[in-house]
Design a protein around this nucleic acid. Structure first.
Lengths: 194, 194
DNA sequence: GGCCTGGTTGGCACTGAGTGTCAACTAGTC
DNA sequence: GACTAGTTGACACTCAGTGCCAACCAGGCC
């Protein structure tokens, strides 16, 4: 083997390029009617190779959200230690927001994610990944009295708030800023749970 | 059309019978390696007919949890109006617990659900259904100040607790009663969110 | 230069999920 | 017994996804 890093870089570049082409097709024709053959043809590679980059069609959409769990972990570790967990999690999720990209495109992608069942499922699964990414740090912050269950429940609730806020944001076609919705959702749980 | 109710009854009976046969195969050989053909043969019907009862293999496993959302709604409506929402939801979920069936079998099914990605995804989706089932009643209980977002966030958090508790219960092979775990999870969110 | 080696690529064939269609069947109705 | 509505099984088909293998590149080494 030669230059490990170099291969990874070209591979990442290829993944980015292919997924961009595929997303165009998805948004134009619809996710479900677009086949692997369509994408492979459009990207100028063989169907077989396409499968080597993306195991499933859903993966093509979800590569973007892949390592947001790691980002969230970094953001959480950066929060001050004396900040209450719930507040810290809210602040972390507020950062994830706004990636400053094409607003309309992001909205269409979100709609697709909420409308296509298989995509919805996979994005929910992705959230589980975030959960395990954040688990140790949240457990630490909750203190010695808490175990995996407590930490998992808290993170899952926070992510559930993100999901609920994201859905409203999408359904309202981005009228209300996600940060407002997210804050409201966190507040609602805070109010209800007492 | 003849006797609407009668057809539904025989259909329900068939669904129950077939899914029981299929579950035996799943638990014996594994979910993913068991094909539709295997199930159809074991159930003595054609593959095509099997697809008419269950659109996907996952559906066969999930029929059981299908209408627990309705049950939860009934249970929630039965809770006293002055009970705080969070407590009411906990009490509702505590009822869903313990169906008194075969413990070991339930455990194996749970393990399968947490281990097989496609099943995990689908069960998460199912929880979304509960969410919309419970939405109006929770909104009513939260009062006029709250909208869909607030209600959705609270329900989603509660369901997230159920999921976290369920996972620990399964991974610990049912050592700790689910009711304990669920209560602990609800408490943890209550402690964290303040 | 030629040779080796680890890795990618594309083509081929295959399994399995899922769907549309249609003819045959099985009630209940009049 | 004819009529009607719904169910069933068989066939054919598309598409996702995988295993296999020969062809094709690099770069490293002599």
């Amino acid at each position: 083997m030669v230059n490990e890093g170099m291969w990874n870089r070209t591979r990442q570049a290829a993944i980015g390029e292919i997924s961009a082409i595929a997303m165009d097709l998805f948004l134009e024709r619809g996710f479900e009617v677009t086949t692997f053959d369509d994408i492979a043809t459009a990207a100028g590679i063989s169907r077989r190779s396409l499968f080597r980059y993306f195991g499933t069609k859903e993966d093509i959409v979800l590569v973007h959200l892949a390592d947001e769990g790691k980002l969230a972990l970094e953001a959480l570790e950066a929060r001050p230690d004396d900040e209450p967990v719930w507040t810290a999690l809210l602040n972390v999720l507020l950062l994830i927001d706004d990636d400053g990209g094409d607003r309309e495109r992001l909205l269409k992608i979100s709609e697709m994610m909420y409308d296509v069942p298989s995509l919805r499922s996979r994005s929910l699964e992705k959230h589980l990944q975030w959960q395990s990414d954040l688990l140790p740090e949240v457990k630490r912050r909750l203190g010695a009295a808490s175990g995996d269950l407590q930490a998992a429940a808290v993170i899952a609730s926070a992510v559930a708030c993100l999901d609920a806020a994201g859905e409203i944001w999408t359904r309202s076609r981005g009228q209300i800023p996600l940060s407002h919705l997210l804050t409201d959702a966190f507040d609602a749980v805070q109010q209800a749970a007492r």
